[in-house]
């Protein structure tokens, strides 16, 4: 057993499931947004904000942002542990990316709140 502190999930299996599950959520959300653009002849501010005013779209959006956060966190950690062998540099990059992802999530939360 290789023990590693900075992974996101509890175990390798947990990480693996989170990456797959979050990928499915992101794919569904992408289809949903593409579907909106395809079925809406002219996208205006009115129907765009109407879309995001319904509760389930808000929940779906926030769920997707959470998926991006987990997917990005685990994915970047995997890439960094492959290619960046200097521990301090890797920790720094991981920190910056993780903070960025959390900031993205919070930004999304407040934007949704305001609609």
């Amino acid at each position: 057993m290789v023990s590693v502190a900075s992974t996101f999930g509890r175990s390798g299996t947990h990480d693996y499931v989170l990456v797959r599950a979050s990928a499915i959520i992101m794919a569904l959300y992408s289809l949903f947004i593409i579907g909106f653009f395809v079925t809406t002849p002219d996208v205006t501010y009115a129907n765009w904000s109407a879309l995001f005013s319904s509760l389930w779209v808000k929940v779906f959006t926030l769920l997707t942002l959470t998926a991006v956060l987990m997917h990005g966190w685990i994915g970047i950690w995997q890439v960094l542990t492959d290619y960046v062998k200097a521990t301090r540099l890797r920790a720094l990059i991981q920190f910056v990316v993780s903070v960025g992802l959390i900031a993205m999530w919070l930004t999304g939360l407040f934007v949704l709140w305001g609609v």
Binding site: M1, V2, V4, T7, G9, S11, G12, D15, Y16, T81
Partner: peptide
């Protein structure tokens, strides 16, 4: 148990 980490198999 010995394989269930982020490196060994995954």
């Amino acid at each position: 148990d010995d394989l269930d980490d982020a490196f060994s198999v995954f």
